[in-house]
């Protein structure tokens, strides 16, 4: 199944070929968790603070669904 993944801010260094806000389209096996997807992409677990699926927070152990728009996000805030 296919998903699109975005990474932001300090996490972009691990996927340096992606432009700002650009999605990486990936095929992943059924049953893949967000933690597994994060590891596949080489994102350090302690640097991923938030994971979103279609704009909604998910937990690392939740399972990825076909067509998900996924974002891995480090510590951010401000205003």
């Amino acid at each position: 199944m296919q998903v699109e993944v975005r990474v932001f801010a300090t996490l972009r260094q691990y996927l340096p070929d992606l432009g700002i806000g650009e999605a990486k389209v990936m095929d992943v096996p059924e049953g893949t968790t967000f933690a597994q997807l994060r590891d596949m992409l080489g994102l350090p677990a302690d640097e991923v603070k938030i994971i979103m699926r279609n704009g909604i927070h998910v937990e690392p152990d939740d399972v990825v669904q076909d067509g998900d728009r996924i974002a891995f996000i480090p510590a951010v805030a401000g205003g």
Binding site: R6, G55, A77
Partner: peptide, 12 residues
């Protein structure tokens, strides 16, 4: 900077 939030709040 604070504009680190732009992509994140957009994503949300």
């Amino acid at each position: 900077g604070t504009d680190v939030l732009m992509n994140i709040i957009n994503e949300a």
